[in-house]
């Protein structure tokens, strides 16, 4: 591999620029869809780009008494961890280094931003940030378990700890979406909590805690946080697609890319519809729902898969 090809891979395709376009495209789709569900026109396609550019150009203000280095590191670290996770997820028709256990690595890397999000709340010392941070940690302990338990149904069936292994298993056994539809739905609800989308946008509920931990952030740091969240959406959705629809396309083919895109858009539609349909839950209601209902359900689901 020569240096130009390497740089092209890192920066443009399938690296940074492509992922950015994908993330912002999904963001636009989300906003447009919710707007249409609510009877509005919605933003034009370049709106997320414009927002991002504007934020990068804005002045960066932090409250007095906060540690500048620490607060700058937080969004950078979370951005970096999501980008690293995306390196291991085979987006579109890209081959990635796959090894036994890369699933665990991805799960870890995807949960790092949530922890940093909580730290951001404590680092900026605003009352709303602290409440938002506490909420995000509480939410982390409920949805993360749910997401992991639900998606591990596919690991049990495929008997593999790598994404490629799960995908290969589906070529033999058929897509997991049909036999494991409940597991898929549970994983999706876990993902909603992970992405802090409505109706589980409790840590950043704007009628209560303004913007949660991000209240005091502005400018480039806020832009990085937002970008992280959008990239997390891409990562989470493609993880679900690989685990549940893995056999629908071949790698390294244009048709594969198209099928993958269609699936991604459909999943985004589902997420948008869900966030348009429900009111935000209260944090205690969420925890009760998760630990009394959804997590026992996913445990039962896994138990059933093991016995079978």
């Amino acid at each position: 591999m020569n240096i130009t090809e390497f740089l092209f891979n890192i920066l443009i395709f399938p690296g940074f620029l492509f992922l950015l376009a994908l993330a912002l495209g999904l963001d636009w789709l989300d906003r447009k869809l919710i707007a249409r569900f609510q009877g509005r026109v919605g933003p034009p396609w370049y709106q997320p780009w414009a927002d991002l550019l504007k934020l990068f150009a804005k002045e960066d203000i932090l409250p007095a008494g906060t540690n500048v280095v620490f607060t700058s590191l937080l969004p950078l670290l979370s951005f970096a961890s999501v980008m690293t996770a995306l390196f291991y997820i085979p987006i579109a028709f890209r081959r990635v280094p796959s090894f036994q256990g890369d699933f665990i690595v991805i799960m870890f890397l995807l949960s790092v931003p949530s922890l940093l999000y909580f730290l951001a709340g404590w680092a900026t010392k605003g009352v709303y940030s602290i409440i938002g941070g506490n909420r995000s940690l509480l939410q982390y302990f409920s949805y993360e378990v749910l997401f992991l338990l639900a998606i591990s149904g596919t690991i049990i069936t495929s008997n593999s700890w790598s994404i490629e292994g799960i995908r290969q298993a589906q070529f033999e056994q058929g897509a997991f979406i049909l036999p494991q539809i409940f597991g898929f739905l549970l994983a999706l609800s876990g993902l909603i909590g992970k992405l802090k989308r409505g109706p589980l946008d409790i840590p950043k509920a704007n009628s209560e805690v303004i913007a949660g931990p991000l209240t005091e952030f502005s400018g480039k740091k806020l832009a990085l946080w937002i970008l992280t969240n959008e990239l997390q959406t891409v990562a989470g959705l493609s993880l679900l697609i690989y685990c549940y629809f893995g056999n629908l396309w071949q790698m390294n083919k244009l048709s594969g890319f198209l099928i993958f895109s269609v699936l991604l858009v459909l999943m985004q539609c589902l997420l948008s519809a869900i966030s348009a349909m429900y009111a935000r839950l209260r944090i205690d209601q969420l925890i009760r729902l998760n630990w009394y209902l959804l997590i026992p359900l996913s445990l039962l689901h896994n138990l059933y898969l093991i016995i079978k």
């Binding site: 869809l33 707007a35 249409r36 569900f37 609510q38 009877g39 509005r40 026109v41 519809a273």
Partner: peptide, 12 residues
């Protein structure tokens, strides 16, 4: 939301 999605937007 589906019926609104397929009808014309109210905002201009």
């Amino acid at each position: 939301i589906t019926s609104v999605f397929f009808s014309k937007a109210e905002t201009i």
